[in-house]
Design a protein around this nucleic acid. Structure first.
Lengths: 252, 252
DNA sequence: CGCTATATTGACCAGAGTCAAGCTTTGTGG
DNA sequence: CCACAAAGCTTGACTCTGGTCAATATAGCG
């Protein structure tokens, strides 16, 4: 069963990912006076490793830190009044999470680790101290939060206007952007379950299965259990939204 | 047809709303050294009035200002690749908009005025200047943005997990919170169309009509064209989510 | 006062959900 | 290293909620 991690027992950190590809790199570099912020810097006080099923934070936890996913993947979700959950994001290399707790100083969401994951921790009070002396640190943070707001709006569009096929295609496209290796067909490891994908996209796991199967039949992707291979990105892109000629009625 | 407003031609501002009830009040007061920030202060350089159908900003406009709705209502929306639109919010008294443009320095969304509306304008560069000298100004802003992120997440839950009845009930509850007058039954003027409500909630206007009609039949609300009267708030609250006993299967 | 946009209501339909059964992968303990 | 259990995935049959299309009705605007 999932349990809270023991931060003191973290094994030695493996540096899977360059700092300069991290969403927090701008912050880290500013905090370190423009020096290369790799490995150790003024902003990040701690790094640690979590394993699948462990929580990074739980709903109601008091907020002291924000986190960057250095390598791995984490899902975040919120609870409705009736106990239903909505996954609000899957967060991979370089992404920053915990920003939604800043108002109210308690986490409204939970973050659970999907695979062995390496996390950078930034003390928020420490961040505030630093930003008094470093102009631009706060603006960087505002930009990051603004970006998070934008992603939320894109998600509303997906959930409010797109059908199941478009949702899956859009989701797969967003995965494909995270791919580094340029081998063709490029591949991605789905660390989340079909049920998680469905929850995130406002669909059931059955619908996710069926549509992935159809994409595979049509030669757009190839699936081998947890791995997905992107075969025809052009056709996948075409499926993310309706062709511009149909359905312009909904313009405001 | 909607047109961009002429800011120089603004008629004299009527002060409908107390500054201390505004979402930006914390910022304004901090910027004014703790003095009461009403009417004029160091942060807000300009106020103006827009009329129904006018744009506050358009997609692609370069970002210089953020705005607070002093009195009135504004809808914001984004475009999908195929031209479909998703309304991302209806913004009433005291709400702050324009925060999504901060990353990228261009507006991704549009804001269109639904009724004669009084807006406070804050120059973002000016805000940044001020915040260098006033600790806490930036943290206030971070808190406001964090709150916006939370609202986005709640919206994902609504769009991803709730059925049409729950969506409408949740929406009406959120309207009822904006009501000042305590007369019973309390009322709210719907400045947005049924189509707008549907667009926002991921429904069609027909579904919105039908469910509002059913709420009225059931004596939960009363509708007189643009006005809605809240008759039975308890039953409305009960409709916003499923009873806790059913459907706990979806817990993560 | 008439015209247009918006709202309402009904009949019908389809996309995605539900339920169920069987299959595959993963993890655990002997 | 294998056997078994549990969790996750897949597929099919059927259902139902909410969308679509269409025909009025009403309201708001000039």
């Amino acid at each position: 069963m999932p349990k809270r991690y023991d931060r003191t027992a973290s094994p030695p950190t493996l540096e899977f990912m360059m700092c300069k590809d991290c969403g927090m790199y701008g912050l880290c570099r500013l905090a370190s006076n423009g020096e290369d912020a790799n490995v150790s810097n003024a902003l990040v006080k701690r790094r640690f490793v979590l394993r699948r099923g462990e929580y990074l934070y739980r709903s109601g936890d008091s907020f002291h830190e924000i986190y960057a996913v250095r390598h791995g993947s984490i899902k975040t979700y919120i609870f409705g009044d009736d106990g239903r959950t909505q996954i609000t994001g899957f967060h991979g290399n370089g992404e920053i999470i915990g920003l939604d707790a800043l108002d109210g100083m308690h986490f409204a969401s939970e973050a659970i680790v999907l695979e062995t994951t390496n996390v950078c921790e930034v003390s928020f009070p420490h961040f505030q101290d630093l930003s008094r002396n470093i102009p631009g640190l706060q603006s960087q943070m505002l930009a990051i939060m603004s970006h998070t707001i934008l992603r939320g709006q894109q998600m509303m569009l997906l959930l409010g206007k797109k059908n199941a096929t478009e949702r899956l295609a859009t989701y797969l496209m967003s995965l494909s952007r995270h791919i580094k290796n340029k081998s063709s067909p490029s591949s991605y490891k789905l660390t989340m379950s079909r049920r998680d994908i469905g929850n995130y996209l406002g669909l059931t796991q059955e619908t996710v299965c069926r549509i992935l199967a159809r994409f595979q039949e049509d030669g757009i992707i190839k699936i081998e259990s947890k791995y997905i291979y992107f075969v025809d990105m052009d056709r996948l892109t075409a499926l993310t939204s309706q062709s511009r000629t149909e359905h312009i009625a909904d313009c405001i």
